[in-house]
Simulated scan of single mutants.
Amino acid sequence: MIQSMTGFGKASVQLPTKKITVEIKSLNSKGFDLNMRLPSVYREMELGLRNQAAHILERGKVDFSVFIESTSEVTSTKVNAPIIRAYMAQLEAIYPMSDPTELMKMAIRMPDALKTERDEIDENDWQEIQQQINEALANIKEFRIAEGASLEREFVMRIENIRSLMNSAVALDSERIETVKTRLRTAIEDLKATVDENRYEQELIYYLEKYDITEERVRLDNHLNYFLETMQGEGSNGRKLGFIVQEMGREINTMGSKANHSEMQKMVVQMKDELEKIKEQILNVL
């Protein structure tokens, strides 16, 4: 079954001192394009997470975010008192008799006035984060499968529309051939020339072979069947479906160039319209 590259997955958990939230969003892309946002303390885990996401999601433009919100009254950012006192002393030397409150306001904005104590990775916290990541990846996978089922229904409808239009065009073939014969005979009669019947038959056969669409019809029918068969295959098959759609387009275009019949041309245009709608959606297929 096909899957969409468009998806969204989210998971969160409330721990005693923090809330962990994982969000994963994906859109269509030719390859795997991952934008990952992690708290700085977990940067060393990024490579492993990238490999994990690439293995599960395969393709798509992916935004992968891990948010950790502290719910504790304890903060890792501290006021660097010695540095602030030093700044205030320097400012006092420049502006004697200054208001200490104003000096404090200026000093607190200076570099290194605040210091952040680097946290070490807590294995228990990381296990919780990994669990939420696994859940978010499972959720986005489920989302993609659901979107893929919707795309599959759309494709089946469009493929059957093309097949129906193709059969309707083929049904006009005998009428079209008679029209070609009549047109050639009328053109010869207008010339008021004596025609060798054998030569006329040879020319007629040449034109009928030139306008024959049997080969295109057979190939297009095979491509339609192959498209439906490929959709049911395992794994990523979006690129393969794209190639099949290109081949379908070639056969429809050739039928149009050979049609030489107004009603058949209309059906070819309708087939092209259905095919364009498939092309628009095929870009979303994994």
Rank of each mutant, 00 (worst) to 15 (best):
106 M>T: 00
272 K>R: 15
203 E>C: 08
227 F>D: 03
7 G>F: 06
28 N>P: 11
6 T>D: 03
200 Y>A: 11
224 L>G: 10
264 M>N: 02
64 F>W: 08
247 E>A: 11
26 S>P: 12
130 Q>C: 10
170 V>N: 13
6 T>Q: 00
256 G>V: 09
34 L>H: 02
237 N>Y: 08
16 P>R: 11
195 V>F: 01
278 I>A: 09
75 T>M: 05
8 F>K: 08
279 K>Q: 15
264 M>A: 08
163 R>S: 07
144 R>L: 02
210 K>L: 10
197 E>H: 01
100 P>K: 12
2 I>Y: 04
194 T>G: 09
52 Q>K: 15
57 L>F: 01
265 Q>L: 09
167 N>G: 01
237 N>W: 01
87 Y>R: 01
128 E>T: 10
92 E>A: 15
159 I>G: 06
247 E>F: 07
2 I>N: 05
41 V>T: 12
49 L>N: 01
109 R>A: 09
163 R>Q: 14
4 S>Q: 07
234 E>N: 11
134 N>R: 04
163 R>F: 00
10 K>D: 03
172 L>G: 08
120 E>I: 02
175 E>H: 09
134 N>M: 03
267 M>H: 12
279 K>Y: 04
19 K>R: 15
123 E>W: 05
33 D>F: 02
264 M>P: 03
97 M>H: 15
192 K>A: 03
218 V>W: 00
46 E>I: 02
47 L>D: 10
184 L>I: 15
90 Q>R: 14
64 F>S: 03
33 D>E: 15
59 R>Q: 09
10 K>W: 02
32 F>V: 05
120 E>C: 05
88 M>S: 05
201 E>G: 00
